[in-house]
Amino acid sequence: MKNKPSLAVNIGGLKMNNPVMTASGTFGFGKEYAPYLDLNRLGAIVVKGTTLKPKAGNKVPRIAETPAGMLNAVGLENPGVDYFLAHEMPFLKQHDVPVVVNIAGNSAADYAELAARLDREEGIAALEVNISCPNVKQGGIAFGTQCSMAQDVIGAVRKVTQLPLIAKLSPNVTSIVEIAKSVEEAGADAVSLINTLLGMSIDAKTRKPRLANIVGGLSGPAVKPVALRMVWQVAGAIDIPIIGMGGIMTAEDAVEFLIAGASAVAVGTANFVNPHATMDIVNGIEQYLEEEGMKDIHELIGSLQI
């Protein structure tokens, strides 16, 4: 029998059996999707964005469908880090899958305090630092649109933890390449991109916005070309690995991100449409490698033919 191709990747110290992760905020804390797939077969689970204190989130409607996409303005609703550790982490620990905690805060000090708290906990494989949430007034995106602020946050977190640090970048910037370079310099081990694109939807009949927050983050197949372009540009500018995301629905989409230079991918909105999308994508990538005669996924990563 032929040997299966190797799908294993190492994202700045985060070792995964395959490159398929879940995008933060689209997969809850894992348990929500447990009836539909074997969580152990994921490359990693990235849990819902977590803050020091519980966060109520925005008013409804928080979601609006758009052509081949959706807008969300959930506003980082989460039960806080203490609740997460007490009530959500035990379930995740029963599984043999790396857990990545996405963290958000209102100040660099907040991020650092949260990172220090999580650094002490068993079973956390990496931290994804969310400097790109478009749906909260303070923090989030404010840190991700200016290089100096992004550096402050990543630098502060870097000081308090040895865990692999992934900086999640916003596409709502003049140059994502500059932001990527500055977080690399500040000590990030990897970057993930893209977070959602800031957008808006209006009901012409009522002349009202379709989201209570008026604006929200666009995701889904509609954003894929933008995400691919950004991954490709950033891949040419930094040395740390990239987790590519934005509208990945199928294995072919994921393969495109790997070709553009991503070392791993995250699946987000697709989970809502097809609850076992991640599994289909893992299987599909493996099949693609076999068909192309590749023994290792690294033969595919960054293999764009120009």
Binding site: G25, T26, F27, G28, E32, Y33, K48, G57, K59, V60, P61, R62, I63, N72, V74, E77, N271, F272, P275
Partner: peptide
């Protein structure tokens, strides 16, 4: 999502 993951239907 319909399964409690996305927190849209608060």
């Amino acid at each position: 999502c319909g399964v409690g993951a996305c927190l849209s239907c608060a």
